[in-house]
């Protein structure tokens, strides 16, 4: 791990951060507050990616309407991630298929990885923050 950490100019450390999203967007606050950490992390110029597994894949669904549950709809925030230079979004294939979803159901472009591929990617990270 630490031997792979590169130093950026000025001596700042650049680590690989993965934000791992495992929960549905509504029902609990984890997804919403998890996204707040991701946005803040952009200011630290780290090597950031996001992964979506289990019910976390529902966070990326298109055409979400939250008016019936009187909660703030934060779906559009996922589209804004690109503006924060957070462009590496991974979805676990098994989680997606188990829920009858395809890439066309998502509000942003993602890279679909198998469970094994995602595990390998996770092993490369310096920090995994999981919600």
């Amino acid at each position: 791990m630490s031997d792979e950490i590169e130093m950026e100019e000025g001596g700042g450390v650049v680590k690989k951060f993965m934000f791992l999203n495992r929960k549905a967007p509504y029902g609990t606050i984890y997804a919403l507050e998890g996204l707040e950490v991701v946005l803040i992390s952009a200011a630290f110029e780290q090597d950031v990616c996001m992964a979506f597994v289990d019910d976390g894949v529902y966070q990326l669904m298109k055409d979400v309407d939250t008016s019936g549950i009187e909660m703030k709809n934060f779906s559009k925030t996922y589209r804004a991630l690109e503006g924060y230079d957070i462009e590496k979004l991974y979805v676990e294939r098994e989680s997606m298929e188990l829920r009858g979803l395809t890439e066309d159901d998502f509000i942003v472009d993602v890279t679909v990885l198998s469970s094994a591929e995602l595990a390998a990617l996770m092993a490369e990270q310096d920090v995994v923050i999981s919600h």
């Binding site: 950490v37 803040i40 200011a43 630290f44 780290q46 920090v127 999981s130």
Partner: peptide, 21 residues
């Protein structure tokens, strides 16, 4: 304080250990 303190902890520490669901 702000969430930046969490990201900073991830950068500064050798290991960030999460407790929760």
């Amino acid at each position: 304080s702000g969430l930046g303190q969490l990201v900073e902890a991830g950068i500064q520490a050798d290991r960030l250990v999460t407790f929760g669901d």
